[in-house]
Each structure stands twice: as structure tokens, then as C-alpha cells.
Design a protein around this nucleic acid. Structure first.
Length: 214
DNA sequence: GAGTAACC
DNA sequence: GCTC
């Protein structure tokens, strides 16, 4: 299922599905800026542990930037224009995150991607994300853009039903994964993060997920 | 595969 | 976006 996407350089890119592309190392040139931008967002909207509607604590801690932020609590999964913890709007989507996400989406064939939400997930060793679909967004025409920073993680990329077998893709610091079109509703998740130390992020992985939610 | 919540 |  892996096939050449762009017919060569720059960088390494591969199709991992009809509507999906993995851009290896794509965010490396701006990684320091991205991490600084995340730090600024987090100073205004700190990482917090959310609970699922069923009351289970998530193993990642989360925050958001942009006009809309993904949240979960007893009332369900949804997007909110304000940080429920502060009552204030989420911090603006950093320019370097927006430009990187748009460039990655364009390379993957999504030219007019205008994200309004950036979910920031912090994985510590043992943190995971169980298999799920992203379906709280209003329109599924826009792709999902996932930027990986810090410790590597094994990403699970499944099919349109939960029972389909999953492909395993290691996502490293600087990798950007884009999925949309026929792959937009594919189940996906992340295996428990292994222990380690990364020179840029320390003992964690930061994932930025850009979406058009509204 | 099913239950979990809340909404469609 | 959880757990069994």
C-alpha cells in the first residue's frame, strides 16, 4: 500500500492510503519554532487531563489553540470556542503551525485547507490513544493534519470499521501525517508511548492535530 | 463485539 | 479519543 507520492525529493513522502500521505521530517526545519509556539499556548491554556463521557480519564493531557478546541467531559465529545477551564477563548493558532499545516496539506493534495482548530496532545511514557474516528467536525471534506514532535510513537492506521486490521507507522519528531478524502474517517490510534528522552521535548511526545472543525 | 454519553 |  506504500507507493511513491511525489516522484522524489524534496524530503521523503509516501502514500499510506488513497487520501493519505506521510511526510517524514517535514516539520524538522521549524521544529524549534513549533515547540516554542506550543509553550506559549500552554502558558495561557495549560495541559489538562480530560475524561471521556463514560468517566474514564484519558492518558494523554490536552490543550488547544485556534477558534475551536476539542474537549471531552461527561456531556460528550465536542468542539468549544472557549477553554472550559478558564472561560476564555483558546489561544490563537500560531502562525508557524498554520503555515506548516497548510503546506503539508497542499503537498498531500488538499490545496484549500483552512484549519480552525489545533488539538495539542501530550504523551508521556505509557500514554496511548485507543482506536477511534475523528467525527466531531462539521464537514469531512477537510483533511486531518497531524504533526509529531519529540519521542517517537507507533501510530495505528485502521480502516473504516473498527475491526479492520491496522497498519503500524512509526511517527518521529518532525513527521507530518495527512489523511483525508476516502481516508478521512479511518480508525486510528497510538500505541502506549515508550520511555525515552528527546533533546527537544524531554521525556514526552507532543502531537499537534489540525482540523477544520466548524 | 459491546457498553459507555449525548447528540444527530 | 474509554474499557472490558
Amino acid at each position: 500500500m506504500t507507493e511513491d507520492l511525489f516522484g522524489g525529493p524534496p524530503g521523503e513522502a509516501e502514500r499510506i492510503g488513497a487520501g493519505s500521505a506521510l511526510l517524514r521530517g517535514f516539520a524538522l526545519p521549524s521544529a524549534a519554532d513549533l515547540v516554542a509556539a506550543v509553550d506559549a499556548v500552554i502558558s495561557a491554556a495549560p495541559f489538562r487531563r480530560m475524561s471521556t463521557p463514560g468517566g474514564q480519564a484519558m492518558s494523554v493531557t490536552m490543550s488547544n489553540a485556534g477558534a475551536l478546541g476539542w474537549i471531552t467531559d461527561r456531556r460528550g465529545y465536542r468542539y468549544s470556542p472557549v477553554d472550559p477551564q478558564s472561560g476564555r477563548p483558546w489561544p490563537p493558532l500560531p502562525g508557524c503551525v498554520l503555515s506548516l499545516g497548510r503546506a503539508a496539506a497542499a503537498l498531500a493534495g488538499y490545496e484549500d485547507f483552512v484549519p480552525d482548530a489545533c488539538l495539542i496532545n501530550r504523551y508521556e511514557p505509557g500514554s496511548r490513544m485507543s482506536l477511534h474516528q475523528d467525527r466531531d467536525e462539521k464537514d469531512f471534506d477537510a483533511p486531518i493534519v497531524s504533526i509529531s514532535l519529540g519521542l517517537p510513537a507507533v501510530f495505528l492506521f485502521g480502516g473504516l470499521s473498527r475491526s479492520e486490521r491496522t497498519a503500524r507507522v512509526t511517527l518521529a519528531h518532525g513527521d507530518v501525517l495527512v489523511w483525508g478524502g476516502p481516508d478521512r474517517l479511518r480508525f486510528h490510534g497510538v500505541m502506549p508511548l515508550g520511555a525515552g528522552e528527546h533533546p527537544v521535548t524531554g521525556a514526552c511526545r507532543i502531537n499537534l492535530t489540525l482540523r477544520k472543525a466548524g
